[in-house]
Computed example of a mutant assay.
Amino acid sequence: METESLKAQLTENLDEAEWGWLIPHIEREVVIIVEQQLDLLEVGEAIAEDNAVSVQHWISEQLIHKPLPEEISQWNDQPEKRFKALIVQPFVLVQELRVDG
């Protein structure tokens, strides 16, 4: 798969989502949280290309992970919470959108 066309396709699929939209995906256990210091598109590209070395590194550093029960509980209390979201089948990669003062 060509990297440029993959990156263009992923960029096109990048969107924002409210917490409520993510709940069905949480229930299917396909949501992956991507920490702020990582580029969401770069992570999506690595997953799409099955780049196990990068993905395993991010997992070991806890930079990507399944949502923790505490996070889910917190977000359930904030239904308007927004995320950057990227679908990389079968996963939904999300990053919390920070609201700056």
Rank of each mutant, 00 (worst) to 15 (best):
T3F: 10
T3G: 00
T3H: 09
L6F: 06
L6P: 01
A8M: 11
Q9M: 07
Q9V: 08
T11H: 12
L14C: 08
L14F: 02
A17M: 11
W19L: 01
G20P: 01
W21Y: 13
L22E: 05
L22C: 08
P24K: 03
E27R: 12
E29R: 13
E29W: 00
V30Q: 07
V31R: 01
I32A: 00
I33G: 02
I33P: 02
V34R: 06
E35K: 13
E35A: 14
Q37D: 10
L38C: 05
L40C: 09
L41N: 04
E42S: 14
G44N: 06
A46D: 08
A46E: 03
I47G: 01
E49M: 13
A52Y: 01
A52F: 09
S54L: 12
S54P: 00
V55P: 00
H57C: 00
H57K: 14
W58G: 04
W58C: 03
I59V: 15
I59H: 06
E61F: 11
L63W: 08
L63K: 13
L63T: 04
K66E: 11
N76P: 03
P79L: 01
F83G: 00
A85T: 08
L86M: 08
V88M: 05
Q89R: 10
Q89G: 15
Q89A: 15
F91R: 02
V92E: 02
V94H: 02
Q95D: 08
E96P: 04
E96A: 07
L97H: 03
L97C: 08
